[in-house]
């Protein structure tokens, strides 16, 4: 008998609203440039759209998860230790999902929405994708079902992971206790992730535990002499809701159509964002190389 697990996000939403309001008051007192009404409206609109898109695809994702679970290696019970283990392994799966979302343009086309604001505040946390199902973001969790974690348990801990990641999208919190910064993802670590500074590009993919970045060589600490600048390399310069949601998909379609030959066409799908068949554009690597050549 499977227990009926609640959706933690439903319970967290009122808290999200109160904390966004509190952060706005902080911005009002400290620096009024840290919020912009149109940016907030776009972020929250994208958040609502993401919830609707998620609800529409939830049935299909759950059906796939249940089907994969049918081939499970172990029968993992609904025990407290299983929830803890599931949470940790789900966070590891999240790290690889997130890393691929920045390194493969097909996945980036969906994830870029979350990075498209030039602001870094709690409303940015809610700026979420509408096309996660199309970009196959759920495949990274399939190994968990194959191991034997029940789908309901995995989706429960995944929601907890999502709730944790809300509060780290802020400039209102500086650095935290040393032990906490060493183990957990924090506002400081995640500011680095959202920054477009050459030093910070494609760093700190962690969801909850920053140890994954330290383990896999993608960690970068926030520096006082290199203040993070937020957004994407090619800033949108627009608050248009649908443009924010679909601009990278449109970019991919244009590039694939114009590319000479299948090798180049496929390159625009699976190569990193910024890759081009003639080398005329910049990727994270070339941006960092130019920055280093300039003497940093």
């Amino acid at each position: 008998m499977e227990p009926a697990l609640p959706d933690p996000v439903d319970y967290a939403v009122p808290g999200f609203v109160v904390l966004v309001l509190a952060e706005m008051l902080w911005a009002w007192a400290k620096d009024r440039r840290r919020y912009c009404p149109r940016d907030t409206l776009t972020s929250l609109g994208l958040g609502l759209g993401s919830t609707v898109a998620g609800a529409l695809s939830a049935g299909a994702v759950f059906a796939i998860a249940t089907w994969v679970h049918g081939f499970r290696l172990l029968d993992i019970p609904y025990a407290w230790w299983a929830f803890v283990l599931c949470f940790v392994l789900d966070d590891l799966a999240y790290y690889w999902f997130h890393r691929s979302a920045h390194r493969v343009r097909w996945f980036w086309a969906s994830h870029v929405i979350h990075h498209s604001s030039q602001h870094y505040n709690l409303s940015t946390a809610l700026r979420q994708t509408w096309t996660g199902f199309i970009s196959l973001g759920f495949i990274w969790r399939l190994p968990l079902f194959l191991i034997g974690f029940p789908p309901a348990m995995v989706f429960f801990v995944a929601a907890l992971n999502l709730v944790y990641q809300f509060w780290i999208h802020t400039e209102a919190v500086g650095r935290m206790l040393r032990w906490f910064e060493a183990v957990m993802n924090t506002p400081s670590h995640h500011r680095v992730h959202h920054a477009v500074n050459a030093r910070y590009l494609d760093r700190n993919y962690a969801g909850v535990f920053i140890v994954w970045d330290k383990l896999f060589g993608t960690f970068e600490g926030e520096r006082d002499d290199d203040r993070p600048r937020y957004g994407i390399v090619h800033q949108l310069g627009s608050f248009h809701l649908f443009w924010a949601a679909f601009h990278e998909w449109i970019g991919i379609a244009r590039d694939v159509r114009a590319a000479p030959g299948w090798r180049a066409k496929l390159g625009y799908l699976w190569r990193p964002p910024g890759w081009s068949h003639d080398g005329s554009r910049d990727t994270s690597e070339t941006i960092r190389a130019k920055w280093e050549a300039r003497g940093r």
């Binding site: 309001l21 706005m24 008051l25 911005a27 009002w28 009024r32 440039r33 840290r34 919020y35 912009c36 009404p37 940016d39 907030t40």
Partner: peptide, 9 residues
């Protein structure tokens, strides 16, 4: 609306 009312940005 709160962001607009607080004259943020």
């Amino acid at each position: 609306g709160a962001a607009w009312w607080l004259r943020l940005g």
